[in-house]
Design a binder for these strands. Structure first.
Length: 291
DNA sequence: AAGATTGTTGCTTA
DNA sequence: TTAAGCAACAATCT
């Protein structure tokens, strides 16, 4: 389940390796994962190059050397794996920690490969997606800007301030967890980092957002910044499916403090980690030290 | 074999 | 008009 740190890891892996390569051909397994017609994809991409790869929230933005942008969303099980002269360089969904792409289960393409980008120098970029929720979409600048404008404030960015968070939480009766999951309000946080952030901040996930005190908001901001920075540094979390742009697992899994630890001892107090449902999502927290 | 898994959309209800 | 809650989506695992 790639969230901000995982998508950012992939972005960094691909930006600089896949950029500048001329696209020779495209292979689509079906038309399910592309939001435009195949012909349009071929027309816009073949013979062209990606100039730069950007990211907003969990969305990857490949800027082309023409008026188009290729948007790729990995949703839950998407992977992007760059293969340079049979050496795997970049990834997306889950494997053995530190392992190479071979661990995706052998050669690429595999049974979950949905799209292949063939470059003229022989390099390849594979888009794999077990559950087929991810998508590729071509847009022009105008549509891109409209899409970007809907994303909320993002951790690590300058506008992730106490003042802005206050505005977001004000008058919201929903749980703090559901607000942090809402990409239109705050972007990039998914289920795993949500639980980790609220654990570090000492806040119970079901607390109504409008009851969060200013001091606690400060804790949310500092916790989010610290956790996300550390996660990026460790190339993301592999809980089930994520791999980096080289088909390797992320190392942040070793640093998870609550997620997936139901029934285990709290790492901060003597409590036992409990699992409940919040915002329809599996939610882990310590009832003793998260208030 | 039903239920859980999760990111996002879109529907329904208030 | 907006917010909140939840089903739906796909495929797999338990």
């Amino acid at each position: 389940m790639p969230e901000l740190p995982e998508v950012e890891t992939i972005r960094r892996d691909l930006d600089g390796s896949v950029t500048g390569l001329k696209i020779k051909s495209l292979v689509f397994e079906s038309d399910k994962e592309i939001k435009n017609k195949k012909d349009h994809f071929n027309d816009v991409l073949i013979g062209n190059k990606f100039k730069e790869i950007k990211r907003v929230g969990k969305l990857l933005i490949f800027e082309l050397d023409n008026p188009y942008f290729l948007l790729i969303h990995l949703k839950m099980t998407g992977q992007l794996i760059f293969c340079s002269k049979n050496k795997f360089i970049a990834g997306g969904h889950s494997l053995e920690k530190g392992s190479l792409v071979e661990d995706v289960g052998g050669d690429l393409p595999n049974r979950y490969t949905r799209v292949i980008f063939n470059f003229i120098n022989g390099d390849k970029l594979f888009f794999n997606d077990l559950r087929r929720f991810g998508y590729l979409k071509l847009v022009k600048k105008e549509e891109l800007e409209e899409i970007i404008s809907k994303y909320g404030i993002e951790p690590l960015k300058v506008d992730f301030t106490l003042e802005n968070l206050k505005k977001v939480l004000k008058n919201r009766k929903a749980s703090i967890k559901s607000i942090l999951l809402n990409q239109n309000l705050i972007s990039g946080i998914g289920n795993i980092y949500n639980d980790e952030i609220l654990f570090k901040a000492g806040i119970e996930p079901e607390r109504p957002a409008n009851k969060i005190k200013t001091k606690e908001m400060g804790k949310i901001i500092s916790s989010a910044n610290k956790i996300i920075k550390k996660a990026i540094k460790n190339r993301g979390t592999t809980f089930s499916d994520y791999t980096d742009g080289q088909g390797r697992k992320g190392n942040f899994s070793n640093f998870l403090k609550v997620y997936g630890r139901e029934g285990e001892k709290c790492k901060r107090c003597s409590g036992i980690i409990k699992k409940i449902k919040v915002a329809n999502r599996g939610t882990y927290f310590c009832p003793k030290c998260q208030k």
